[in-house]
Design a protein around this nucleic acid. Sequence first.
DNA 1: CGGACAAGCTGA
DNA 2: CAGCTTGTCCGG
Length: 607
Amino acid sequence: MADQGRLDLGLSEPDPVPAAPELPPGSRVVRVLPDVAAIERSFDYLVPPAWAEDGRGDRLVVGSRVRIALAGRRVGGWVVEDNVVPPAGVELRSLAKASGLGPSPEVIDLARWASHRWAGRLNGLLGTASPPNVVESLPPRPARPTVPPATDTWAVRALEVQRSVVRLPPGADVLPLAVEAARKGDALILLPTVPAADQLALRLRGEGLPVSLAQREWARSAAGGLVVGSRSAALAPVGDLAAVVVVDEHDETYQEERAPTWHARDMAVERARRAGVPCVLTSPSPSLEALRWGELMVPSLEGERDGWPALDLHDRRDDDPVRSGLLGERLVDILRGSEGDPVVCVLNRRGRSRLLACDSCGGLVCCSEHQAPMIQEDADMLVCPVDGARRPQVCDDCGATRFRNLRAGVARIREELEALAGRPVLEVTGDTDMPDGGLGGHAVYVGTEAVLHRVRSAARVVFLEFDQELLAPRMRASEQAMALLIRAARLVGGRSDGGRIVVQTRMPEHEVLQAVLHADPGRLVEAESARRKLLNLPPWSALARVSGPPAEDFITALGSPDGVDLLGPRDGAWLVRAPGHDRLAEVLAAVERPKGRLRIEVDPPRA
DNA sequence: CGGACAAGCTGA
DNA sequence: CAGCTTGTCCGG
């Protein structure tokens, strides 16, 4: 079959074939997509005639969850098409069981669109769109709430346009926007994390609004009212969708890491477009994607200035790189608590030293054969990262045996911070357990960026080495660096409340830092937008990263379609670049997929 | 995914 | 050539 390797969007068997003669007249046949990750085809089943009499037949609609016999076992699935004419020559089996409600036809169509847009399988998306347990019927629709007239005019204005991007400073409250969305009717409100969604849901309930949590309260969401949730909520049922709000649209947690790497912001935008309802994206620093899509609105420049913390740039270019290590002298007072506690220090690295300099001559300790920086394995052995050769810890140039860390990991820096602060310092990593409400009670914390998620609040956040964020070899390095500063800003509060962030850097003129310094995210946009345009990167193009053992075959099969560049291979992966997402999706879908573990990441998160 | 079946390897 | 592993195909 010619399209064997292609993705089935639940609409296979396009040729109208006469029904098999053995099918009794009046039989109802439905097309079912199995809920099995590896199966991307749909199959036809007979609706048991008995169901027509007891009402089960009426409840069976496109989207319904069913159980089917497939290759000798029972699996779940979704009805993706009703009243189909099955291809000739197949002996139909009957549906084994009806297992309740599933996504609406609108959400199925949306998922189909997403499956094409992100070149991935439909059944995973339908799984996300389905209730976690069997739902036989919906609760009654909640009474329409009486929403008090809005006091925040920006929220009203934001929902008056179909596509608006609201630039709100880090500390701003989105509650007025959610309430205003509720005035429109049933609204979908997305937040980056589940705790943030839970908290907003609680506050909206406090306002007397009917709110349900997406996924966990699937049936209530489908019945009506406000639906609040994180990424997966973009596919949640909503009664009668009247508005969509995506809070902190810049946040990368909106993108699914596994293929299909769909993005909840883009999904929500498309959902609103299809429903013809207004969609509002908010962010302290809107993404280029958002700005290209909608109309930018800045409620108050004054509010924005007050809402960002002050930024202290510690320019380290004047310091002796060898002598002063990672901790500049200006940090001492902060670490000792003279500007308030707690102090949160961020260093995006794990483990111990990666880069050593001789204490007496200042030279970098490199492998004489490969010129690569040696790694300190234990107290007195060095290891070459290229071939693993070991040698004793002695400087090649001067024979000294004392070294200094230029790139200490978090574990080492904790000890140094403790010495400098003269008080205990708690190390926080991604593995550190987080108590409810976040960590508290310590005076000084140090950790990778995970520390920004785990500590409740801070008097100061110090980025010990920010340049690696600014210079990271990733397309979105600047936006990601900005996202870190936004997180930090939320821990310390706005400048009007004394909020202050400290950044040690050798690039104080970098647009990310300048944007925060002047509480003007537009400065980042100008520079970043020009750079991306020059390099023909998103949002001025659309990218997909293709990897896995069959990647080469796939790329070869793509050929050289019009307007499409193939870049690579690099680390066994290729980049496919097209002028836009329509073209990209079209090109990726046009080719048979070689078997094997092919991974296609559209909008690759780490390109 | 998981079963069916076919093609390849091993051992006496 | 049985008995087993490994690979490929396919499901209504």
